[in-house]
Computed example of a mutant assay.
Amino acid sequence: VAIPFTVLVSFTLNILLREIGAADLSGAGAAFGAVTQVGPIVTVLIVAGAGATAICADLGARTIREEIDAMRVLGIDPVHRLVVPRVLASMFVALMLNGLVCTIGIVGGFLFSVLLQDVNPGAFVNGITLLTHLPELVISEVKAGLFGLIAGLVACYLGLNVKGGPKSVGDAVNQTVVFAFMALFVVNVVVTAVGIKFAAR
């Protein structure tokens, strides 16, 4: 998923840079795009689309089978036993996935730019750190951690509040995807805006 996103960004950016005679800056654009936007967005797609739906389906199935009620009767707190580990795992996976996607994005942008658009390899590598520094990487990881947290919380909430039969579990899974995407894109905009303010100082 990361490669098509990065290739699209690199391709359009390289066309623009060629027009203004600055093709050597393609590494700066590819790295900045991969770290600040492509990494977190792909993380959203994977965490919310795959991880959160699996969490919601699991908890929803447990809820309609009355396993959650049975746990409460036994004095086991479902939030402590089921929700907290899943939310923490979702955050951890999002952080790791974001780093992987950023790396794949930069490598993919390098290969695409150098092999297909004749960008100078040395200039590409030198440009990587031109716009992308530690603050951008930290903001990207903060975004990913928040995405994992929110996706996990949304999935757990909807899964534990399923009412009815198996159809309601399917509805909750669909709602998880929609609500998680909506929340995560809002968080992306807000964290990006706040991060730019702090990074500019």
Rank of each mutant, 00 (worst) to 15 (best):
C102M: 13
G105F: 05
S113D: 11
V84K: 06
L115F: 09
I106C: 10
D118Q: 11
M71T: 05
V87S: 04
H80I: 11
V101F: 11
I76V: 15
A94P: 02
Q117W: 02
G109L: 02
M96N: 07
Q117A: 12
V83H: 02
P85A: 11
M96Y: 01
I76Y: 09
A70T: 13
L97H: 01
Q117H: 12
R72T: 15
L95K: 00
F110Q: 07
M71D: 06
V83P: 00
D118V: 01
A94I: 02
A70Q: 10
V79Y: 15
G105E: 04
L74I: 02
V93I: 14
F110E: 02
G108K: 05
F92Y: 14
V107C: 03
V73R: 08
F112C: 06
L100I: 10
V119K: 01
F92G: 11
R72P: 04
I106T: 08
R81M: 09
V79T: 15
F112P: 02
V114K: 14
P121I: 11
H80N: 12
L82K: 02
P78V: 09
P78G: 09
L116F: 14
L82D: 05
N98M: 13
L97Y: 03
R81S: 15
R72A: 12
D77T: 03
G109N: 05
F112K: 03
T103I: 12
D118C: 00
D69W: 09
L97N: 00
N120A: 14
L88D: 01
L95G: 03
P121C: 11
F110C: 06
I76L: 11
M96A: 15
M71N: 05
V79S: 12
V93A: 08
G105M: 08
L88K: 05
P121L: 10
F110I: 06
G108M: 05
F92N: 13
V73W: 06
R72E: 10
P78I: 09
L82M: 11
V83L: 13
L116K: 09
I104C: 09
L74T: 05
I76K: 04
N98C: 14
L74H: 08
M71Y: 09
V107P: 01
F92E: 10
I104S: 05
G105D: 05
N120D: 15
M71H: 04
V114R: 09
V73L: 15
D69V: 15
L95C: 10
V84M: 10
V87N: 01
V114G: 11
V114C: 12
L82V: 10
P121N: 14
L82A: 07
I104L: 10
I76T: 08
A94K: 00
C102R: 04
L82E: 08
L116W: 15
D77A: 07
L116G: 14
G99E: 03
L74C: 11
S90L: 04
A89F: 05
R81P: 00
T103W: 13
L88M: 12
G105H: 03
V83Y: 03
V84E: 03
I76W: 02
V93L: 12
G75H: 01
P121W: 11
A94Q: 00
H80R: 13
M91Q: 06
C102A: 14
G75N: 02
H80F: 13
G109D: 08
N98P: 03
